[in-house]
């Protein structure tokens, strides 16, 4: 049972991890609860659905196209919605309300365009991968791989490149970054595109694994937000490991209690962290 639990924590945690890292990356330059990131997740899944199941394109083309679409939408939202609000000095609360409005519109649009029905993505092999006595669908294995690869890339980008330094500079002190000549808006735009790609990918993988429905974005993003807060958002290690921590807690809850308590476990942990360790497990030490 331990092995089962471990593998399931890996599968679920990897899914949460992608969303948590996307959210944390976005938050590093645009620090507010951006609910339209949920729309980006849904766009990744529905974009792939439209291109494969409806337009009949091969998945090998549809998946990258959807991810690029997510990056473009994320950047457009940042450029034409959030940046103008930010320049007007809008508070985080105003930005949250704006993002809630946009999320609601996007959900209604998906509802109108694709209907309220539950859908499954097709077009790729659904074969299982077997190890010892355990079998895992290929898409779940790919989710784990994607989670680790993206964690590695983001870590490298943020801490071993000049661009990463500029992102951290904007995160630490946007005004000072501006004074020193950094183009904050350009940096935020690029970061939002990268975050859009990560969230779009997580939407695609979730779509292949558990299907899609119009409300999927918000539910998934919320777990990502909880994971990011549990882990802490000052480094990428926080959301990455926080996701596995959340998945482990949820799965132990399922095992010890019942599946219906899964969300309760997640929210109890979320509240405990908000109360006693709001900066997460991997809190950055103030110098």
């Amino acid at each position: 049972m331990f092995l089962v639990l471990l593998i399931n924590v890996l599968i679920v945690g990897a899914g949460y991890g992608l969303m948590a890292m996307g959210f944390a990356l976005m938050c590093s330059v645009s620090p507010f609860f951006n609910l339209t990131l949920g729309s980006i997740i849904a766009l990744g899944a529905y974009g792939t659905y439209a291109l494969t199941n409806l337009a009949g394109l091969p998945a090998v083309f549809a998946i990258p196209a959807s991810i690029v679409l997510c990056a473009v939408l994320s950047a457009l939202l940042e450029r034409f919605v959030y940046t103008p609000f930010r320049l007007k000095g809008a508070s985080s609360m105003v930005l949250l309300v704006v993002s809630l409005g946009l999320y609601t519109i996007s959900e209604a649009f998906i509802h109108l365009a694709f209907g309220p029905q539950y859908q499954i993505l097709g077009g790729v092999s659904v074969q299982n991968i077997n190890f010892a006595s355990f079998s895992m669908p290929k898409v779940q294995f790919l989710t784990i791989v994607a989670d680790f690869v993206i964690f590695g890339i983001l870590n490298g980008l943020l801490f071993h490149t000049f661009f990463g330094k500029t992102i951290r500079a904007v995160n630490d002190n946007p005004k000072l970054a501006d004074i020193t000549g950094l183009n904050n808006n350009k940096i935020i735009l690029i970061v939002s595109a990268i975050a859009g790609m990560i969230l779009g990918l997580s939407g695609v993988l979730t779509g292949f694994d558990t299907g899609l429905e119009p409300t999927m974005g918000f539910n998934l993003l919320f777990k990502g937000i909880i994971a990011a807060i549990i882990g802490g958002m000052s480094t990428m290690k926080g959301p990455f490991l926080g996701a596995f921590f959340l998945a482990a807690a949820e799965n132990i809850g399922v095992l010890a209690l019942s599946s219906e308590w899964r969300d309760l476990v997640a929210f109890v942990i979320f509240i405990i962290f908000l109360m006693f360790r709001p900066n997460g497990i991997f809190e950055k030490k103030e110098k």
């Binding site: 599968i11 558990t210 399922v254 019942s258 599946s259 219906e260 899964r262």
Partner: peptide
């Protein structure tokens, strides 16, 4: 008896628990 939330998508651990 295993009860699930309406939005549940991950049944793996609970199925393995029932399998025992």
């Amino acid at each position: 008896v295993e009860r699930y939330n309406i939005s549940e998508t991950d049944f793996r651990v609970s199925i393995r628990k029932l399998e025992q």
